[in-house]
């Protein structure tokens, strides 16, 4: 934008903690942080769904569908996310067909004109879907071929075997990298600021464009990004822990307690019982 015009004002700038404190919990910042969280979670969930839908036909080598899926992954992993965001918001509406109607469906020429939120959501989700497709595929491929044999010998159809046998097992392999994807998504959502979606970064820039407190506002934004990624890391650890069979019953509290107990007591006391 016009950040460069701010340069002269910065020459004698001093870092002002007051400004940080003032904006950290301001209504507009909290709302913007919420939008960042909201669009990231939304796009991630849609992305996971796309990933599964794209990975399965690729794995089963379904004709036509698997080629389409490969093309999709190739294209959206091969072009920059920023470019894709600009495409959905700016380029797509230019090529929308004129008004047309068919039976009960009526299309207006502006039906492809997406709001910044819609465009950002579509861009993030569709991009994420391409990455998730690769992650889901790796998960599916990690399952022994004997599982598919067993499922088929019981009369399951391809998609049934996927749903009932392969995907539930692949889930364990898929979850850790998906957690990392969401971590990246929280930060990539800031790219939506270029199409004026008022998430955290866009809002911070809007504020410092007015008060010239650039570093302070970037610190405010960083604070919220760090809160989100840190909390997510804890949640991710918890999920991964619960997936390990030996930890299945031990929740966060149990493990915190075990963590605080000296090891000597754990060895003798917790499991011994009879002594």
């Amino acid at each position: 934008m016009d950040d460069l015009l701010l340069a002269p004002a910065l020459l004698a700038a001093k870092f002002d903690f007051g400004t940080v404190r003032e904006y950290l919990f301001r209504d507009i910042v909290i709302k913007a942080a919420w939008r960042t969280l909201y669009i990231s979670a939304y796009a991630q969930i849609v992305g996971v769904a796309i990933g599964v839908v794209v990975a399965v036909p690729r794995h089963l080598r379904m004709p036509v569908l698997s080629q389409l899926a490969s093309f999709y992954v190739w294209f959206f992993r091969g072009t920059p996310l920023l470019l894709q965001i600009l495409f959905w918001f700016t380029a797509l509406p230019l090529y929308a067909p004129d008004d047309f109607g068919w039976w009960i469906f009526q299309f207006k020429h502006d039906w492809l004109l997406l709001s910044p939120f819609q465009a950002a959501l579509v861009a993030l989700a569709v991009n994420e879907g391409a990455y998730m497709a690769e992650i889901v595929r790796a998960g599916i491929e990690s399952i022994e071929s004997g599982q598919m044999d067993a499922a088929k010998s019981l009369g399951m159809r391809n998609l049934q075997a996927m749903r009932l046998v392969i995907l539930p097992q692949a889930f364990r392999v898929i979850v850790p990298p998906t957690g990392n994807e969401f971590n990246a998504m929280l930060k990539n959502s800031s790219l939506a600021s270029v199409i004026a979606f008022n998430e955290l970064l866009f809002t911070s820039r809007g504020v410092y464009a007015r008060n010239y407190q650039v570093l302070e506002l970037l610190v405010v934004a960083s604070f919220w990004y760090l809160v989100f990624t840190t909390v997510w890391t804890v949640i991710q650890d918890e999920i991964e822990c619960r997936m390990r069979p030996e930890m299945r019953r031990a929740g966060l509290l149990t493990r915190l307690r075990n963590g605080l107990t000296p090891p000597s007591r754990l060895i003798g006391g917790d499991t011994g019982g009879g002594r």
């Binding site: 044999d149 067993a150 088929k152 010998s153 019981l154 009369g155 399951m156 159809r157 391809n158 049934q160």
Partner: peptide
């Protein structure tokens, strides 16, 4: 798959 269902493995 229907045929496979009749054969136990």
């Amino acid at each position: 798959s229907r045929a496979r269902a009749d054969v136990g493995m």
